[in-house]
Design a protein around this nucleic acid. Sequence first.
DNA 1: GTGCATTATACGCCAATGGCGTCTAAACGC
DNA 2: GCGTTTAGACGCCATTGGCGTATAATGCAC
Lengths: 96, 96
Amino acid sequence: MSKFAKDLIAGMTEAVAYAGGEKAGAAVHVVEVPDVRAIRRQLHMTQHEFADAYRIPLATLKNWEQGRRAPDAPAAAYLQAISRKPLVIREALQQG
Amino acid sequence: MSKFAKDLIAGMTEAVAYAGGEKAGAAVHVVEVPDVRAIRRQLHMTQHEFADAYRIPLATLKNWEQGRRAPDAPAAAYLQAISRKPLVIREALQQG
DNA sequence: GTGCATTATACGCCAATGGCGTCTAAACGC
DNA sequence: GCGTTTAGACGCCATTGGCGTATAATGCAC
């Protein structure tokens, strides 16, 4: 079975338990996969510009946008931070 | 040969060329691997707290701090952003 | 001191990812 | 038309992340 399938089952199991009132240990953590392309286009940047600005390898960014690969948890968090505070993060990366 | 070994050799080769005065093309690009533990301790957080706050899997954080794995480029950028703007990024992740 | 929980190190295993390459195809200006 | 830029698609493979277990420290109560 694929990991994705296992995650789905785990998530559903938790959701069912939650709906059933078994709150104990039923932390439903849906890992939001951000829409990388939407974030990038909001900033009016090409893939190349975006990749350079936030130090994401261009090939990796392409894979994410094409759906061939999914950003892992910290990358997803990073992207969410970028979408919310693009300027602050660019500044943080640019200095030293 | 491991990638790490190759990187070491490449970096040393560049450093030697630089020290020898061959500046042309000898852009010494040491991919700054941030000191994850130092960043975390500056914020007075345990591995668990830090991992939860910034959505880094605990096992991954442990591997980084132990030197068994190195954060990839976007993860390194993310960590640098965290070290410079910890509060802003936590807020960006907490909403939605 | 003893016991216990928390925190952290260390390492094995394996699917999934990132990095790199090539090829194709739109979109744009010339 | 033609060339450049941008982006989609896919193969290959070393490296990573995720998960588990075992082992030390550390801290704190009793």
